[in-house]
């Protein structure tokens, strides 16, 4: 098996900002282990094969640096769970991001 452990899945859940329950951890770790085990078959493919990330034929698709209408402040905040002074109100932020 791909030996994805319960701890690995717990770590993935943290990285992905999912507060998964212990019960979920049990189910997910076995399922994800099985799935990763199956998809790991791609490992057979030789390294010298070039990767394909996209199937778009074109390159250098650029936008002209010209102003376009923005949303009104009201429209921008229309879906906000909380807003204040024209800004999105969010719970206190810890840390500095990256």
């Amino acid at each position: 098996m791909s030996d994805i452990t319960r701890d690995d899945v717990a770590h993935l859940a943290r990285l992905a900002r999912l507060a998964v329950s212990d019960e979920e951890l049990d189910v997910f770790s076995s399922q994800i282990d099985a799935i990763v085990d199956t998809v790991s078959r791609v490992g057979e493919i030789p390294d010298d094969v070039p990767p394909t990330a996209q199937v778009v034929p074109q390159t250098n698709v650029l936008r002209r640096d010209v102003r376009e209408p923005s949303l009104s402040n009201a429209a921008a905040l229309s879906g906000a769970p909380a807003a204040e002074e024209g800004r999105f109100r969010v719970p206190r932020i810890l840390g500095e991001g990256a």
Binding site: S70, E85, G86
Partner: peptide, 13 residues
């Protein structure tokens, strides 16, 4: 995107 790149405008405009 085509939004203005401007400093010091009203928030979220």
């Amino acid at each position: 995107c085509g939004c203005a790149n401007a400093f010091g405008a009203e928030p979220n405009t």
